[in-house]
Write a protein that binds this DNA or RNA. Structure first.
Lengths: 167, 167
DNA sequence: CAGCAACTATAGCGGCGGCAATATTCCCCC
DNA sequence: GGGGGAATATTGCCGCCGCTATAGTTGCTG
């Protein structure tokens, strides 16, 4: 084993990306924790709030987060217990149920969002001048388009309607 | 709540970064799974193999991975059970113990590394022309230097010696 | 040299999340 | 109109990991 394989530029590139992700994640989690939210709970709140009627079917919510359907069931359990969201029966399909944000959930999001945006600016977007930031984002966009799960999720075209709203 | 907050360029920027991370992580995990390794186990193997003597104290291993010390204890338990690494008593300090890679561990790493590198090239570094890649990496480096945990770990200067080896 | 604070590794406990199984409902095709 | 396959949400079971307490060790300090 040649020890210098670890100096391979490919390794250092992903190392860089992952370190940035880890650093940002940690700071986000710390700030969200001050508002009694975990990272996934914040994302659930965000996804629901940007959806029409502040609601989403459980399956669609799972598709938009990086959670399995059972994971969504559990996080919705917790947040419903905390009064942040509620389940509502779907009128057109009795298998489905909606997760809908409560006023308390919206308020919690309002409280935590400004600090979150400030954190992004302080530790990420504000660290680079506009040109460098654009170059970074362009590169990320290009990689994202290649590696994005939606590009490979074309196995069953039946769910295309919901996926089209996501991607 | 103005729904357009979510179009804030800061939100989309982190969304991009996190999507790329999630996509790459998923593909890495799938490939490593073919070799019977999880992502953390692969990282442990990597960190140990690039260290002098193919070994590291448990605490230092925890510092280099994003695991707590108890997390390191458990992952070393599993990998020791699988014959990938071994514990060795530290001669100079009877509190410490080394985790050291076994030949089987090195072989496992050798088997999985080429595919891993290929994956990085296919889905990340190979997606951009050299100039764009350099711009991306420069931006990441700048953000990393700002957000890196080591920059904030200066609360107790006593551990500076070990940290200096990491950063 | 005695005592004390810091450090190191580990074990118990609890939360979180994925996989597979299950019950219910829907849709399509005969 | 009825039967079979797909979709949806949930639950049980399990593994992973962080927090905290614990035991052993070290070094400093009075």
């Amino acid at each position: 084993m040649n020890p210098n394989v670890f100096d391979d530029p490919r390794i250092t590139a992903v190392g860089l990306l992952f370190e940035v992700h880890a650093g940002l994640s940690a700071r986000f989690a710390a700030q969200l924790d001050e508002h009694g939210l975990s990272a996934v709970e914040f994302e659930v709140l965000t996804r629901l709030s940007r959806s029409p009627g502040n609601q989403l079917r459980m399956t669609d919510l799972a598709a938009q987060t990086s959670l399995s359907t059972s994971g969504v069931t559990r996080v919705v359990d917790r947040m419903e217990r905390d009064g942040l969201i509620t389940r509502r029966a779907c009128p057109s399909d009795r298998r489905s149920s909606y997760a809908v944000v409560t006023p308390a959930g919206l308020q919690r999001l309002d409280e935590s969002l400004p600090g979150h945006l400030q954190l992004i600016e302080d530790w990420f977007t504000g660290q680079l001048d506009p040109a460098a930031l654009n170059a970074l984002l362009d590169g990320l966009r290009q990689v994202r388009d290649a590696v994005h799960p939606c590009a490979t999720a074309g196995s069953s075209g039946a769910t295309g309607a919901t996926n089209s709203a996501v991607c």
